[in-house]
Design a binder for these strands. Structure first.
Length: 426
RNA sequence: GGAGAGGUGCCAGAGUGGUUGAAUGGGGCGGUCUCGAAAACCGUUGUCCCGCUUGCGGGACCGAGGGUUCGAAUCCCUCCCUCUCCGCCA
């Protein structure tokens, strides 16, 4: 959510931002209603002032034994007027809010302006794509032959877009989670969080999934709860409606959670194997920082996510998303894409975003600035560190051998209970 | 699921329908004292919104939302949450 004061003073900037993000918002109507509301507010507050003063006088008169009957009659009329005015202000306010929460965040000045992913900017790449002396297999075939992936039975149990890991596959999934959390805690100084996997509507609103993406969320209708689409939601909401101390910042959290997404509107896209699934595991990094530090923290955050792929020795590239490809709440976003030799293309395994104060304003997360004693909104950031399923894909496809076995990369071996190679006969 | 208790400021904890934005204590901040510190004492200490803007004036907020009233933290209704006991279950 943007600051209404900012919109009042910079309507053209906001309009331009909406356009570059392909997310229309009626700024003119917003500002007109806002002006009308403030005028009404001034009027009704004057009446309330009068009422407050009169009520005080009535109390005094009663205590003095005088009859305040006439004054009370007047105040009854005034009170009715106030009630009516309050009501119409509330109506106006709810329309204003509705428009306001639909205004996207403004892209940072370093973000390329462009309508879609074709305008994303290449930032850098890491690692060398492995050359195979044979034709590398795609993960689903490889996993099936090794008996570590069972997509067919997962579909029977639940439906398409779900995954069942088995034996060394399940162990590998668990090892990856464990490995990633350890790196972020021990080497990057994040604090581990294990949050609820189910959240309420307010939390989904706070991080910006609602109302825009409601159709992509699994909701638990009777309970009015939602399955989380990312740990970003519960972890960022930890400080909702709180005021932090300046010395507490930056706060850096890492959390493993499963993620649930309907993937509405993406039918037919990424249908191979488990490239796009409804439930996947992810290790997520979340930061709460001071505004003046957020862009440095953003760069550092990207490095933390990259580190995982570097340690696993999986080649990847980093893109800076164009304005039109960014999410509603983001001001700047990098994507990390791991190379999948079986599929012969890159897979997005991490999104590293700076939301500035957009989420913090929705969630009302502030900190007290020591120097001024004033409360300011924090900046929130998050990055996958990193998303499983697809890392699993890149890993087994990259480390596959001609005989169909998969070698476990060195960094992961301490987590694999002595398994150095996954073979079919095991 | 059944029975009770309760939700007030950074924390603890008062609060008769009318100078209560809120007693008191603790904490924080500033000061006196001290070589320094502790103790003691004095002062200060919520958030948001609107308007003119160094400052000031006004409004709102005592879990959330309604209602009664000239006036609600205080009375009534609905919802949410927390705690205790019983039942059930991991």
């Amino acid at each position: 959510m943007l600051d209404i004061h900012f919109i009042r003073e910079n309507p053209e900037v906001v309009k331009k931002a909406c356009k570059s993000k392909n997310m229309p918002a009626d700024i003119d109507t917003l500002l007109r209603l806002d002006g009308e509301k403030r005028e009404m507010l001034a009027q009704v507050e004057e009446k309330k002032h009068e009422r407050n003063a009169a009520s005080k006088r009535i109390g005094e008169m009663k205590r003095a034994g005088r009859d305040p009957g006439l004054l009370m009659d007047d105040m009854k009329k005034l009170s009715d007027e106030i009630k009516k005015a309050d009501l119409s202000i509330a109506e106006k306010e709810s329309v204003i809010q509705e428009i306001l929460i639909g205004v996207p965040n403004i892209p940072h000045k370093s973000v390329p302006v462009g309508a879609d992913a074709s305008k994303n900017a290449f930032v850098h790449e890491w690692g060398e794509k492995k050359r195979f002396s044979f034709k590398p297999k795609v993960h689903d075939k490889l996993g099936e032959e090794l008996d570590i992936l069972d997509l067919k039975r997962a579909a029977k149990i639940t439906g398409s877009g779900f995954v069942l890991f088995k034996g060394a596959g399940a162990l590998l999934e668990r090892a990856l989670i464990d490995f990633m959390i350890d790196i972020h805690v021990q080497e990057h100084g994040f604090i581990e969080i294990s949050p609820p996997f189910i959240v309420n509507r307010m939390s989904m609103f706070g991080t910006g999934q609602l109302p825009k993406l409601e159709e992509d969320m699994y909701d638990l209708e009777e309970a009015k709860y939602f399955l989380i689409p990312t740990a970003e939601v519960p972890v960022t909401n930890i400080f909702r409606d709180e005021i932090l101390q300046e010395d507490d910042l930056p706060v850096r959290y890492v959390a493993y959670t499963p993620c649930f997404r309907k993937e509405a509107g993406s039918y037919g896209k990424d249908t191979t194997g488990m490239t796009r699934v409804h439930q996947f595991d992810k290790v997520e990094l979340v930061k709460f920082v001071k505004p003046e530090e957020s862009y440095q923290e953003h760069e550092d955050l990207l490095k933390c996510s990259e580190k995982i792929l570097q340690k696993l020795d999986i080649p990847y590239r980093v893109l800076l998303l164009a304005s039109g490809d960014m999410s509603f709440a983001a001001a700047k976003c990098y994507d990390i894409e791991a190379w999948s030799p079986g599929l012969g293309r890159y897979l997005e395994v991490s999104s590293c975003s700076n939301f500035e104060d957009f989420q913090a304003r929705r969630m009302n997360i502030r900190f007290r600035r020591k120097k001024t004693g004033k409360n300011e909104f924090v900046h929130t950031l998050n990055s996958s560190g990193i998303a499983l399923a697809r890392t699993f894909i890149a890993l087994i496809e990259t480390y596959q051998n001609e005989d169909g076995s998969v070698t476990i990369p060195g960094a992961l071996r301490p987590y694999m209970k002595g398994v150095e190679k996954i073979t079919a006969d095991k």
